[in-house]
Amino acid sequence: MTIQLTRWPSYWRRALNWGITVGSVFLCLLVLPTRFPGMSLLDVGPNWLLVWVVAWSVKRTMLEGALAGLTLGLIQDGMTAPDPTHALSLVAIGVITARLQKQRYIQEDFISIALIVFGMAVLAETITALQFSLHTILASPEMVERDLGSIWLYHQRIALASAILSSLWAPVVYYPLNRWWERFAEIDQPQA
């Protein structure tokens, strides 16, 4: 595989790289509406887009992380409801994950990725819950759709379920993608 790839023209390789990246996002999007047995807890599934953003941002700059978060957040808005936006939490996840500079401080393994995903999943749900709370506080009383108590009670439940599931399933996305990106960087480096 490696040998053949090095013979490819570099723009073909780059196109393949982008194809794989976009394809993996698309796969994550397709898995989002499913609730397979073993993949759901209290009717909550893993947050696949969050796992993808973490996998993407771990070895990239904050800007790249933010852009990936923005892109996936907009798509998720379209798939559910645009208000409050999912982009905000995913952008924050992208920036913070890139900021962690994992390779400098933490050894490369699944456990650390799972830990990062666990923390980020809790953070993402908290940001969404904050957005909902802000809506409730700013809305006129008769337009209130979710009251504060129920938002944070629900937040506790889904933050924990989503964090556990996302961190357990994180290697499924992270391992192949990370391996490919590493391989690609190795091949692409000499000519670039």
């Binding site: 999007l29 499913t34 889904i158």
Partner: peptide
């Protein structure tokens, strides 16, 4: 029914 919500809040 082929799928559920694509996030946890809806």
């Amino acid at each position: 029914v082929i799928g559920r919500s694509a996030d946890h809040w809806w």
